[in-house]
Amino acid sequence: MRSGHFKERTEQLIVLSDSAPVWAWSAVLVVALAAAPYLLNAYLLSFVVLILITATGALGLHLLTGRTGLISLGHVGFLLLGAYAYAVPVAKYGLSPFVGFALAGTAPALVSVLVGIPSLRLKGLYLAITTLAFSFIIAHLVLQMSWLTNGARGIQVPRPEMFGISFDSDIRFAQLCLFVATITLFGVLNIERSRVGRALMAVRDNDIAARTMGINLQAYKLRAFMTSAFVSGIAGALFGIYLSFVTVEGFPFLMSIEALAILIVGGLGSTLGVVFGSIFIVLLPEVGRTALSLLGENAAKLFSTGANELRSVLYGVAIILFLRFEPRGLVGLWGDRKRLWVNWPLRF
């Protein structure tokens, strides 16, 4: 009788999942998500779309912060660049959306090299600050280069048409986002189980040890930076299409913070956590709204003036309480539930 979970070959260690139920449930999830656009109304669907786009963007940051341990406070800079790299050629010069998406990925990746090379000497918070500075400088340049970007006026972005399919309808666009998010998720999972992924993890956990093992710190950090920027750029392009209107104001600094919040609330370093975190952060403001509407008309009267802020207060309190009682993030909570299920009636 097997009395434990044995892994005897390297392949077993690096396989995405060796559990049939996990694969089965993942398949169910994919089917459910694929079917969702046809079942949900446009309002609920817009949440699905927003979660998918947010998850894609957060996965980009996850590669950098969660896996490589490089904190970025300037994530929004890459999202912004991606959105403009898509919007300018497609909406302004009428090029194919393929060109747009290609640029949305490569432009931020190239810029990330510019940011990355000088800042890789820096560690921890100092790196975080350079990325923060970078995101402000990017926003400034976009505003100044109005011959290319329309400056503060912004660019109206149409829904794309690719492979002869028009993504004009919400259903089609949701499917596009689902496609991109799934590809990204698999990509990230696969990077993690490759040599590169393990090297990044080594850099994160102990860079000096990693160096002695023959890992070129600069090269791997730069690689993490570029991949992260690429993925974030694509998410930025999708976000721009979703907004249908790209301006610098649509990408506030708050988004960088929110992206970090997603990683931490989900469980730092966990890819599954990114997905959980995205769902949590996107839906959190809605919970307050729903709670308020349940209270009915009279409560709504109360909220005629400043009292609306109560909802924002609750949003902040929810984040604080969550981290207070579950600092490992949602993924820790998920692990507890799973263990409870497997070990029941034993506690451990």
Partner: peptide
Amino acid sequence: MVTIGLAVVLRSA
């Protein structure tokens, strides 16, 4: 992250 949550609370308060 908690200080960020705190910032949101203070701002709205």
